[in-house]
Amino acid sequence: MKVRFLVCSLFLIAIVNVKAQENLAAYANIKTEPTEKINFSETNVGIFYQKKLGTKSKIANTIEYSNLKVTYELNPYNFYADQEKFNQIQNKIEYSNQLLEKTKLDISIIPTANFQRNLDFSDVTVLGNIEVKQQLSSKIDVILGAGRTSVFGSPKFTPIIGFNYKMNLNANLSIGFPDSRISYSNNERNKFSLTNSFNGNFYHLDELNNEDKAEKAVLSQMTSAFEYERNVSSNWFLNFKAGYDFNKKYSLLDSNNNKVYDFNTGNGYVLGIGIKYKQ
Rank of each mutant, 00 (worst) to 15 (best):
I15D: 04
N17H: 10
N17L: 09
V18E: 14
K19Q: 11
Q21N: 14
A28I: 14
N29H: 11
P34N: 06
Q50M: 09
T62Q: 10
L68E: 03
L68W: 02
P76R: 11
Y77W: 10
Y77F: 14
N78S: 11
Q83P: 00
E84G: 02
Q90T: 07
I93L: 14
E101T: 07
K102S: 11
L105F: 15
N114D: 10
Q116K: 07
L119T: 00
L119K: 05
V124W: 04
Q134E: 13
I140M: 13
D141M: 08
I143Y: 04
L144G: 06
G145P: 01
A146I: 12
T149S: 02
T149D: 09
F152C: 07
I161K: 00
G162Q: 04
N168T: 10
N168R: 13
N170L: 14
N170S: 12
A171N: 08
L173P: 00
L173W: 05
G176F: 09
D179R: 15
S180E: 11
S183I: 10
Y184A: 01
S185W: 04
N186F: 15
F192Y: 15
L194R: 00
S197F: 03
G200W: 00
G200H: 02
N201M: 10
N201I: 01
N210C: 05
S220C: 09
T223K: 07
A225G: 06
N231K: 13
L238R: 03
A242W: 08
D245F: 00
D245W: 01
L253E: 08
N256D: 10
K259M: 14
F263N: 03
G266E: 04
L271C: 02
L271D: 02
I273S: 10
